[in-house]
Nucleic acid binder design. Structure first.
Lengths: 120, 120
DNA sequence: AAACAAGCTTACTAATAGTAAGGTTTATTC
DNA sequence: GAATAAACCTTACTATTAGTAAGCTTGTTT
């Protein structure tokens, strides 16, 4: 049995169906800034401008876009904060369930160092 | 202490340095097709055309580009297969160390279903 | 009431990805 | 042994996505 098949088996699914879900998922969370946004939301609910301040280099345009996508895919909910026209974003259970993924990446970084940003 | 700080602590690093490495790493592996290529290479060494055949939808151009990036960042090595002008790509230890990340994503998929590809 | 901040949106440019074709070297087939 | 095909790229071009900068609206502060 191939290693990839074992991985899929251990994840409890068989065949290309699992692979497709995996593909869709990894491409979704691989979108630029997505992982970092999820990472920061693991802290708990945050306001738009908090995220904007914490995530160095992200633009309003993409932060808004990514937050909308997180909402649309059920990773996060947007909530109006009472008293004021402020909003807050919070991960859903589905979103919080991503913590092990983030954690495993942090572990990898610890053991293997970073990826530099330079292109070949 | 914030959750993100705890995550960083548990990964054995402190401050924004760890966050930057994390950022660089997640953006690198988040590039389109990168995760899927790594996933397929977890099987062991593979030829170019094997990857091309297994990864549905990828083009020669991007497969070549991603493989070069994996090489340049020390995730994989390219080897000439003796007898023939064939090449083979194999993950390095650094690359194989990514298995837990892939595994955690598969676990997430099992528990939470896929992300559909449709945009909002 | 003037000025400022939050949370977007819009318009435009730059970078990245997708598509299709072709090129070169090796293997295969007639 | 010439023709064909397959492996492994490369190039040129289009389409999609990201980055930059400005502005707009509602609400808050002074």
């Amino acid at each position: 049995m191939k290693k990839t098949e074992e991985l899929i088996q251990s994840a409890g699914q068989a065949g290309s169906g699992a692979c497709d879900s995996f593909h869709a998922t990894i491409e979704f969370i691989g979108k630029r800034w997505m992982g970092i946004i999820i990472y920061h939301l693991l802290d708990g609910p945050k306001r738009y401008h908090e995220l904007a301040a914490e995530i160095d280099g992200i633009s309003d345009r993409l932060l808004t876009e990514r937050l909308k996508e997180l909402e649309a895919h059920g990773f996060a909910v947007k909530r109006a904060v009472p008293a004021g026209r402020k909003v807050e974003y919070e991960l859903t259970d589905k979103g919080y369930a991503f913590e092990p993924v983030i954690r495993s990446i942090l572990t990898w970084v610890k053991q293997n160092g970073s990826c530099t940003k330079d292109r070949t």
